[in-house]
Design a protein around this nucleic acid. Structure first.
Length: 762
DNA sequence: TGCAACGGCGCC
DNA sequence: AAAGGGCGCCGTTGCA
């Protein structure tokens, strides 16, 4: 055991405080020399800071046993004693900023808890009076979640600026109007409403509600980042205003929130739009949702307002304030005002960054208008056939019971298939069957794939009883439930920021009704029915991702297959097996089909062999054949790696970008290969949706989107208009690699989402 | 009793 | 029919 001394000059402008030396540091006798140190140096460098210009120390100067900080007791040390020594040590430094790396240095230097919340904040030290602290994640903690290193980079950029001066001048000072009188409120809102001769003005807006039923407690609003008003609705459970006063106030809010000259800025606008619809109608125009802007720039990063605040503003973390004050009214309202101003400030920063990335038209011409369309879909809802749901539920409950009894008899005891523990015990202990390891998690698994493998090995009826029981339990617990609102309609939330690739996601709404409409089993889709006198027009993009891969890779052979039309997999099989299309066997067809998907996204030959049930040799042969016939796929993969190497980014022909922060390596590449075609598919479809939206007959409404499928509802007599409009807009050619690409749209029509018929002009 | 993590599974 | 990576929801489990 030896002391690892600090390094650097005492008069450095930046001090870095880690927690303790790790094993590598201990061996060399210097702090941050191992892999953590390398990462730290890189991150500092990317913010313009040279590690060697900093004074670098650790709270604890000795390597803890097993790298476990709690075990420093065994060395006769304690955090408290080390803190006293650190105080003495740092009193000799003159740095303008001290970086606290990780939770314990944060606590020791500032008495605050929660590095995830406080990272990036400009804080005043409690250990060393008047000193400026900026905490961030410890590099050691980044190895499990590399995307957080982007936040550390952002924090270090702040450190770089703050290291030029010792004071706290950067912390914003804002004026809030709290507990306003009636006349103050009316004047303030009228002030926001007046345009002063301008054509438009930006207004940021935020509400606070109860968790349970979204009762509105207060509303904050502002037209600048330096001041705001919080208009209370309730104060400690009592109405703040008289009825007449509240009516007048709502009128003013409605005027602002629906004025075409007031460009509304919100964080997660969907929430405000849902909560306020009954009182003010649809909020419009929603000029900018900061969450959407941020997601376009950095889709891998967290999206909460506190994270955005820490990246784009100098406002220190404040989300704890209301809670710590036990939601005392004044503190709660101040918090609301801060949210409003921070949202305004974040919006300005994001707009600037969006413009620098040439994404302004993408954001304002596409993503923000799409939010309106999706909100209207969500608000309209889908009609649910409740009696059908009930009927199916009763049927599947009986099935569950039947297969449960069967399983119990075969197992000789009660087994809950919902418990992976119990199933694993049954299979691998009681029945002593060979264990399966999950391909991705590397853990012992008893999932369906494992059970099917066992059934092939040792056929036994118990396997079927597990599978059936699981299947029907899933249906009963998730799908054959009444998820509708009181009017019988299912309303889900469509989330533009829901995925890292750009796809939409779907989930329950804020009232906890509705469901994810993107994973409804096909055979249950008849529970969703059209309204009286209306039909569903369902459009399906044909082979959208595969076509994009062909065009993006610019593989002439593959492109020609699609250009010729006909059955794509038969033709691929024909190339692979050097056999005329009409002589391809069903087996060859199946293998060709599987190799297309596998090879496009660079599946390993061993995984391919395992999952297709073919030999390693055949798996390699198939993949080789595919790549030999369509050689540009591998080139395309290489070009993606090249771009990742340049700027860790992928860009799509539609202009969407994705920045990758993950570990450099194979899985990063695979994420990137999948990202581009997925992003292309969603943007092709959603851009078309937007164009369709502007031309739809008034009775028609876009109901839902499932990645390559769209459901529109319209009056029966409008089916032809809607279907042809839909087809026209989706099948508009786009240019990829200088070549025109059209994705065919198959359209079906029906009265429910399951029983559909090919559409032909009626 | 409530919460978070986890395994499992529905869809593309 | 599955796989590549992408989601959201369910019940179980273990902990506070």
């Amino acid at each position: 055991m030896r002391k690892v001394p600090s390094v650097g000059r005492l008069d450095s402008s930046i001090v870095i405080v880690g927690i303790a030396p790790n094993k590598e540091d201990d061996m060399v006798g210097m702090p941050f020399v191992g892999s953590q140190g390398t990462l730290l140096r890189q991150l500092l460098k990317s913010a313009g800071i040279d590690f060697n210009d900093c004074y670098v120390t650790n709270l604890v100067k000795y390597h803890p046993p097993h790298n476990d900080i709690k075990r420093i007791k065994e060395l006769g040390l304690s955090i408290e004693k080390c803190a006293v020594e650190l105080k003495e040590e740092l009193s000799h430094t003159t740095a303008n900023v001290i970086i606290a790396l990780g939770e314990i240095p944060l606590q020791v230097l500032t008495s605050k808890e929660g590095i995830g919340n406080y990272r990036g904040s400009i804080l005043q030290s409690t250990l060393l009076q008047e000193r400026k602290i900026i905490p961030t994640y410890h590099p050691g903690s980044l190895f499990h979640q590399m995307s957080l290193s982007a936040l550390v980079m952002s924090d270090f950029k702040r450190v770089f600026i703050e290291s030029k001066f010792p004071d706290f001048r950067s912390i914003p000072k804002r004026n809030f109007l709290i507990r306003p009188s009636y006349s103050q409120t009316i004047n303030y809102l009228n002030d926001i409403l007046s345009l002063d001769g301008k054509e438009f003005k930006k207004v940021s807006f935020d509400i606070e509600t109860t968790r349970i039923n979204q009762t509105i407690l207060c509303m904050g609003i502002s037209d600048n980042k330096d001041s705001a008003i919080c208009v209370p609705i309730f104060d400690r459970g009592k109405n703040y205003w008289t009825f007449e006063q509240e009516v007048e106030i709502w009128k003013l809010f409605k005027a602002i929130l629906t004025s075409p000259h007031h460009y509304k800025i919100m964080q997660n606008a969907q929430f405000e739009m849902d909560c306020l619809f009954d009182v003010v109608g649809e909020i419009t125009p929603v000029y900018l949702d900061t969450m959407i802007g941020h997601h376009l720039l950095y889709s891998e990063l967290p999206k909460s307002l506190d994270t955005l605040c820490s990246i784009y503003t100098n406002e220190p973390y404040y989300k704890n304030e209301a809670k710590e004050a036990n939601y005392k009214s004044e503190v709660f309202w101040t918090y609301n005002c801060k949210d409003v101003c921070v949202t305004f400030e974040v919006a300005e920063a994001i707009e600037k960054e969006i413009a620098e990335a040439n994404l302004t038209p993408f954001l304002h011409g596409y993503q923000m208008p799409l939010l309106k369309v999706l909100w209207q879909s969500s608000h309209f809802g889908v009609n649910l056939d409740k009696s059908k749901v009930k009927e199916l539920n009763e049927y599947y409950l009986i099935e569950v019971d039947k297969w449960q009894k069967c399983l119990n008899v075969l197992a000789g005891k009660e087994v809950n298939v919902g418990s992976s523990q119990q199933v694993s015990k049954l299979l691998y202990q009681d029945m002593k069957l060979p264990q399966s390891i999950h391909r991705k998690t590397g853990k012992i698994t008893s999932d369906n794939e494992a059970i099917e493998r066992l059934n092939k090995l040792h056929p036994h009826p118990i396997f079927e009883s597990i599978l059936k029981n699981r299947e029907y339990k899933k249906i009963v617990s998730t799908y054959t439930k009444d998820m509708s609102d009181s009017d019988g309609r299912v309303r889900c939330n469509w989330v533009i920021t829901g995925t890292e690739t750009g796809r939409l996601s779907s989930r329950k709404n804020i009232r906890k009704t509705g469901c994810n409409l993107q994973n409804i089993p096909k055979h249950l889709r008849d529970i969703f029915v059209s309204d009286d006198g209306c039909s569903f027009v369902v459009g399906d993009l044909s082979q959208v991702e595969a076509r994009f891969v062909a065009w993006l890779s610019n593989d002439v052979n593959l492109k020609n297959l699609f250009k010729k039309g006909g059955k794509i997999h038969s033709q691929v099989a024909s190339w692979i097996y050097k056999t005329p299309v009409d002589l391809i066997s069903p087996g060859q067809y199946a293998k060709a089909k599987s190799v297309v998907h596998g090879a496009n996204y660079d599946m390993g030959y061993r995984t391919f062999a395992q999952t297709s049930g073919i030999s390693i040799t055949e798996s390699q042969w198939l993949l080789n054949q595919y790549h030999n016939n369509f050689p540009m796929i591998k080139m395309w993969h290489q070009s993606i790696i090249d771009q990742l190497r340049r700027n860790r980014m992928t860009t799509s022909p539609f202009g969407r970008r994705r920045l990758f922060f993950g570990w450099w390596g194979d899985s990063l590449f695979k994420e990137a290969y999948a990202t581009v075609p997925q992003a292309c598919a969603v943007d092709l479809l959603c851009m078309a949706i937007l164009r369709v939206y502007y031309q739809l007959p008034p009775s028609a409404i876009i109901l839902l989107q499932v990645h390559d499928e769209i459901v529109i509802q319209c009056k029966d007599e409008d089916v032809n208009i809607v279907a042809s409009l839909f087809k026209k807009e989706v099948e508009k050619p786009i240019i990829v690699n200088g070549d025109s690409l059209i994705i065919p749209l198959d359209i079906k029509v029906g009265k429910n989402w399951k029983e559909l018929e090919e559409w032909t002009w009626i």
